[in-house]
């Protein structure tokens, strides 16, 4: 019962974060006049269509103008342009929440649609693919090496790991990506410099899969390089901290073999904070994806964000800001649930 309440509380907070982002976005758009411009553009677009279709029927230009201006007033009321922007706020928030994200001016989905939701949804799997594979590889390496280091306290490698983590924290993924491209794509011509498919894409599902893999090597490696250092260090530190707990000595006193002490009494106990770090790392890399995908021209939501900035597509930018927040919030909620499963202490 209380467990449900705890989760509900967290869910509510996360939903609050989502709403906060939306309200902030809408307020900023409204106060800067962006939203008025946006809606005015929509109105003019509709009126232009109307004028064209009516031009045949109406001989008298005055009458035509009358009809048009009547329609303009109707539309202005419809879009709420007759009232100040803050009256439109609730409706706008609601629209975005229901994923009614509008249309893009120049950007098109691969299938040619100009609906923002199509654009975003089409890119979403690519981003998730990139980030999850990088996160999975990073965490496997991090867990393996971190645990290893924790058993070798005082060794050179163990002491060096803090420097490695500092370096890895300070290394921006996008710059690392640029370096990787220079070295592996242009100097040695080993790997493609960007994109997700060769042009033209190969035939057959297996060939296509291998092609994606081929293109993913550089971006995934880059993401792994820039995050694995702090991962190793974090795992090392958490495992070390746990291994100093009394119950670990108790387990040894019970005659439990060392590998089981490690798995059952150290790693298992350190798991909740490690999983926290894992998910927060994933959620954090979401923002970083905007940069990484840009560098590697990876057709995900991040690259779309960049293209939208370049072409000044407000509606796409708003939609993506919302989507990034949404995924982030979902990831954090998954974290809460996992935490509850992993740590009986919060399972009240």
């Amino acid at each position: 019962m209380t467990l449900v309440k705890t989760l509900a509380m967290r869910g509510l907070t996360l939903f609050g974060a989502l709403i906060a982002v939306l309200v902030l976005a809408v307020v900023v758009l409204g106060a800067t006049g962006f939203s008025d411009n946006l809606l005015n553009a929509i109105v003019s677009e509709e009126l232009r269509g109307l004028r064209q279709s009516l031009a045949q029927n109406f001989r008298d230009p005055v009458e035509l103008e009358n009809v048009i201006s009547l329609r303009r007033e109707e539309l202005r009321v419809f879009y709420g342009l007759d009232t100040p922007w803050y009256f439109r706020l609730p409706a706008m928030v609601l629209r975005v929440l229901t994923l009614d994200l509008g249309e893009a001016r120049t950007l098109r989905s691969f299938a040619g649609s100009n609906r923002v939701i199509d654009l975003v949804l089409e890119r979403l799997p690519n981003t998730i693919l990139l980030l999850t594979s990088a996160t999975v590889i990073t965490s496997i390496i991090g867990l393996y090496v971190g645990v290893k280091l924790a058993t070798q306290v005082g060794s050179k490698a163990e002491r060096g790991s803090s420097y490695l983590s500092a370096f890895s924290y300070a290394l921006p993924a996008w710059w690392m990506g640029v370096l990787m491209i220079i070295v592996f794509a242009f100097q040695f011509r080993l790997l493609p410099s960007g994109g997700m498919f060769s042009a033209p894409p190969p035939e057959g599902p297996l060939a296509r899969f291998l092609d994606v893999l081929w293109h993913a090597i550089l971006p995934v490696t880059t993401l792994v390089i820039v995050s694995v250092g702090s991962w190793i260090f974090t795992v090392r530190t958490m495992v070390l901290n746990t291994s100093q707990e009394d119950f670990v000595t108790v387990a040894r006193a019970k005659g439990i073999p060392e590998n089981k002490v490690m798995n059952r009494h150290i790693i298992r106990v350190a798991a909740p904070p490690i999983v926290t770090f894992l998910i927060l790392g994933f959620a954090g890399s979401l923002g970083g994806a905007i940069l990484t995908e840009t560098v590697f021209a990876w057709p995900g939501m991040g690259r779309l964000f960049y293209d939208a900035i370049l072409t000044g597509e407000e509606s796409v930018i708003i939609a993506l800001t919302f989507m990034f927040t949404l995924i982030y919030v979902i990831a954090r909620f998954i974290l809460e649930v996992l935490y509850v499963l992993l740590d009986p202490r919060v399972r009240y």
């Binding site: 707990e245 009394d246 119950f247 005659g255 106990v269």
Partner: peptide
């Protein structure tokens, strides 16, 4: 260990694995 000589550690609070 434990079969012939066992031990009650100082501080029972921390002698038990919290997730088991």
């Amino acid at each position: 260990r434990w079969k012939k000589i066992s031990m009650v550690f100082q501080g029972a609070m921390n002698s038990l694995n919290p997730v088991m």
